[in-house]
Write a protein that binds this DNA or RNA. Structure first.
Length: 577
DNA sequence: GCCGTTTTCGGCCCGACTGTTTTCAGTCG
């Protein structure tokens, strides 16, 4: 039972409790616990096995949740979960995914109409049964009918890079609008999450109607709702866009509020209360005898300062460790894309890349990088025409020639060697020993058992010539889940052999993800942020990797490819023993 | 269900918008 599965169980309990209209704070306790455990850098089983530590020392895990974690880790079932499941069918939870349907309305159709699936609800709406219920009407019935289709498909969150395209086109669209004094994208986009559910725009203007008219006219968008200061639309492909218009003196408070995360904000408001303050999207107010006086709101710095807090980079606002860091005065100075001096995973036309060695070198130099590693595929990856020993050595001779001509730039002789299904590497040690840099990765046998996949990777890390594991979980966002792998065992092996782990910057990969990177960092394992570029433009993805690294709290020092070539090669040499 | 330099009970962030209502509950972020 790993942390992710425990978190899933707690989220499921929260869903079921919510459907039953349980105490909302109890629901939150389960969600909080789920999030805390999902983000926790060590497996719960490790904490349980340690006699000196208690689960209840983890903030958000009390006596009750601790017992449930222990039960789950012991392979037991939870009586509470079984009881809830016997009362609420799994399919009924889908009802709450319809926009506008919360726990109250879902429970009403379930109990009073016996509706427990989306299909049954569609029929009930078409038979005009729903509008007869108390609190429902014809309009609600229409909204539900329109929303059922969304509930069936809305599960997909787009990658940050995809959302970025929409954010840019909306920014362009709004640029011509008079009355827009300032415009920012807030929400999970600003926090740099790997996936984005909707876009939140914040505008400073004293002509809110005009601004909202402009957004409402966005091509092929439909209106979800609109009030005096807030508008929501849905773009043709389903993405929801919210916009809020605030006066200038509230801009910082509103930006802070709409950037979130929700959990970060809840903690903030709790702190405000302790100080006799109130925070909302309009500012920070001192509350005395029912009188509210404006204290701050123009900038985010101002808002945080009223709570004796530093400004937090948006990527850290996840209610993970940022408040502890602030209290200790040890907020990390996050890595920036300009800190990268190298890119250590890329392909050329020798295998499945679209650019030649020379073109990749030129593109890397243009970007300001100081060194790169060419890591084409090895022979097992037949689809990409992977390299055998002979072709690899030929490529390395070419690289020698290129290096002879270059000043102030170096190309490392590398390879992305496949970790074979049966274990072991796709090229022999005598070839690998002639390289400067080897990344190993899994392409085949992704459906193997957790034990098998973990062993393949751990064994690869033990090979003296392997310096790093590339895309260590193999996930492709919205297309393929991560393979079953015991990352804790991978961290142990990496630390033991002085190896590195990759954060693959491809926006659909981004593995190790933010949580895993933070866990690796806490064990002192250097991270390599790599583009996995297959073209000259491929280096552009590095910024997505940087966003995840920042979310993990990584500094320049935590990332190996921020180092000078000499320092980097020393790190590689350490792993080669 | 969690938490505590206002501790073991009584809190738990806060406001906009919609639809069904005549003053507000439910939902959302």
């Amino acid at each position: 039972m790993n942390n992710a599965r425990i978190a899933e169980v707690f989220d499921q309990i929260a869903d079921l409790l919510e459907f039953q209209d349980a105490n909302p704070f109890r629901v939150r306790a389960y969600r909080n616990g789920a999030r805390t455990i999902r983000d926790y850098p060590e497996p719960m089983t490790v904490v349980l096995a340690d006699a000196d530590r208690k689960l209840t020392d983890i903030k958000g895990v009390g006596k009750d949740l601790a017992e449930k974690v222990a039960a789950l880790c012991a392979g037991e079932t939870l009586p509470l979960l079984e009881e809830l499941q016997s009362q609420v069918p799994e399919s009924a939870l889908m009802l709450m995914r319809i926009p506008g349907m919360g726990p109250k309305k879902a429970a009403a159709v379930f109990h009073e109409l016996g509706v427990s699936t989306l299909d049954q609800l569609r029929e009930a709406c078409q038979a005009q049964q729903v509008r007869k219920l108390k609190g429902f009407g014809a309009k609600t019935e229409e909204t539900i009918l329109a929303g059922i289709g969304l509930a069936e498909t809305i599960d997909v969150r787009m990658t940050w890079a995809q959302a970025d395209q929409f954010a840019r086109s909306i920014k362009d669209w709004m640029r011509d609008c008079e009355g827009v004094e300032q415009l920012e994208v807030a929400g999970s986009y600003r926090r740099g999450r790997d996936t984005i559910g909707d876009l939140d725009f914040l505008v400073v203007s004293n002509q809110p109607q005009q601004v909202m008219d402009r957004l409402a006219a966005f091509p092929e968008a439909s209106l979800i709702g609109r009030g005096p200061t807030k508008i929501s639309i849905r773009l043709a492909d389903g993405l929801q866009v919210d916009m809020r218009v605030v006066p200038e003196k509230s801009f910082g408070a509103a930006l802070q509020y709409f950037t979130g995360s929700k959990d970060h904000n809840i903690i903030l408001r709790g702190r405000a209360k302790e100080r006799g303050l109130k925070i909302n999207e309009y500012g920070v107010f001192r509350v005395e005898d029912d009188e509210e006086t404006f204290e701050a709101g123009r900038t985010e710095e101002e808002v945080y300062a009223t709570l004796d807090l530093p400004w937090f980079p948006p990527e850290l606002r996840e209610a993970r460790r940022e408040f502890d860091w602030a209290a200790a005065g040890s907020l990390p100075e996050l890595i920036d894309v300009g800190d990268l001096r190298a890119d250590l995973h890329m392909h050329t036309t020798e295998t499945d890349g679209k650019a030649t060695l020379d073109e990749m070198v030129a593109a890397a130099r243009k970007r300001g990088l100081k060194y790169i590693a060419i890591t084409d595929h090895s022979k097992r990856v037949t689809m990409a025409r992977g390299l055998d020993a002979q072709r690899l050595r030929t490529q390395w001779k070419e690289i020698d020639k290129v290096n002879d001509k270059l000043r102030g730039f170096r190309v490392l002789k590398g390879i992305e060697v496949d970790i074979l299904e049966r274990g072991g590497l796709d090229l022999d040690d005598d070839v690998l020993s002639e390289s400067d840099w080897v990344v190993a990765s899994i392409h085949y046998g992704q459906n193997q058992s957790r034990a098998d996949i973990t062993k393949r990777v751990v064994d690869a890390l033990a090979n003296p010539y392997v310096s790093a594991i590339a895309h260590p979980t193999g996930r492709l966002i919205n297309r393929r889940p991560p393979y079953e792998i015991d990352l804790a065992a991978v961290y142990d092996a990496a630390r033991k052999h002085h190896k590195m782990l990759e954060l693959n910057a491809n926006p659909a990969r981004l593995d190790l993800d933010d949580v895993a990177c933070a866990a690796a960092k806490s064990r002192g394992i250097p991270i390599v942020i790599s583009s996995d570029a297959h073209s000259a433009e491929g280096f552009g993805v590095l910024r997505y990797g940087i966003l995840q690294a920042r979310r993990a709290g990584l500094t320049k020092a935590d990332v190996a490819n921020t180092r000078s070539l000499d320092a980097f090669l020393k790190l590689v040499a350490k792993g080669r023993g």
